[in-house]
Each structure stands twice: as structure tokens, then as C-alpha cells.
Amino acid sequence: MSEQASISQTGTETSMVEMRGVNKWYGDFHVLRDIDLTVSRGERIVICGPSGSGKSTLIRCINHLEEHQQGEIVVGGMPLTQDVKRIEQIRRRVGMVFQHFNLFPHLTVLENCCLAPMWVQKKPRREAEARAMQYLERVRIAEQAKKYPGQLSGGQQQRVAIARSLCMHPEVMLFDEPTSALDPEMIKEVLDVMVELAQEGMTMLCVTHEMGFAKTVADRVIFMDQGQIIEENAPEPFFNHPQSERTQLFLSQILGH
């Protein structure tokens, strides 16, 4: 498939991520079952569901940290193939924030943010640093730029991780349970940054259990169970009138206390 053909093929400029009939197995275990999902540019999506339901696997398939065995994934008009160059091309356009931050501990905060712009996008150091400082400013952590990740709190580290992703100017951001490894008093500082990002129009897919966040910013909430998308709806009807029994049960469990 040539580059030209593959890009023009989808043509729908508005859809940022498209998944069609995506299936994935770990050995015999069927983790993702017939996933169909279209994310428009600028859309904010929250994915929730019980643990082991395949939410993380789903978003990790989008930047090929996990490989799907069946179906089609198109990111920004570019079909995801096995080709290593293609995968790297797509990853450059997709930012990701991890549950455990995964900052590079041997580099300072500033270096963490400059590394990919300098080595992947070949930006000169001066430009990369200016850009990094700008994003660190935005996540309100610029004064820690010279410190190492090990010297920061969890919430600060996660904000650096968000800045690090933003430095690549991604078109879509994937959040894989960004607040679940944080102490309660640090969750808010990270969520605040995410809310601002959402309000600026970033396309986002967030796997999270922060239902408050979902209500504030999500355009759509997706509920997954046993590798399937069970229900998807706008937040208001999703929380107030969940259709499926499993969604109702799940919501009663996490909102009940």
C-alpha cells in the first residue's frame, strides 16, 4: 500500500482515530472483541470499565504498544500496519500518558521533555528547550525543570509526563489511568491540567475512573466489559440513564460509596 493511496483512502479529515472490527488475543484469551470506535478531531472520550475489561489494551493498540490481530486501525488518516516506519510515524502524532508516569529517571525534567523533539523531530536544542519550558509552564512545573524525576512527587511527575508528550505536538492524547497511581491529594492537580487540555480542544482518549472528570469534559463515555464496548453515550444520559445492566451495576459500584 503506497503512502499516497493510504492517506487519501480514508479521506475523512474529521476522524482522528478509527477502529473497525478490532480483535486481539493474548494466547487463547480474547481481550478485545469486535471493537468499532471512531474518534473525531477535538473529541474527548472517557473509557471506563472493570479491571481486565481491555480498556488499557484498547488505547495501547492505537499507538501499537499492543498489537491487534484482526481488524483495522486508522490514525489521522494513516492505517496502522506492521511496518516499523509507519508505526513510528503514527507514534509521533499520538501522545501517551501512563499510569506509572514512566519518566526517564536518568534525565532531568527538562531533558525528559527535550529528548524526543531533539532526537525524533531533529529540532535544535535551543528550540526544543524553549518549547519544553513553554509546556512545563503550562503544567505549572517550570521551576522544577532542573530536577530529576526522583525528586518530584507523583502528581508533579505525572504533570511532567503530560508536558513531555505535548512537546511532540501530538494530534491526539491517550491517557492510560493517569491518576490511579497517585495519592488522593495529588489527583486534582493532574486532573486540572487534563481539563485545561480538553478545553483547548485536544483530542483525548482517557481510561480513567474519575467520573467527575468524565462529567466535566467528556463528549462521550464508553463502558467496556470483557473486551467489548457495552455502552457509549454522552455523559449526561450515560450516568443518569445507563441502558445495560452491567453498566448500571458498575456505576452503582464506583459511585455508590
Binding site: 504498544l65 516499523v84 507514534r91 501512563f98 506509572h100 514512566n102 519518566l103 532526537w119 508528550s165
Partner: peptide
């Protein structure tokens, strides 16, 4: 940890 390589990969590094 595997997350280190994943984070680097997610930034588009070869």
C-alpha cells in the same frame, strides 16, 4: 522496567 521502553516508543523513537 518495561515502561521505560514503552514511554520511549510512544514518543516515536526507533
Amino acid at each position: 522496567p518495561r515502561g521505560q521502553e514503552e514511554a520511549a516508543a510512544a514518543l516515536g523513537m526507533n
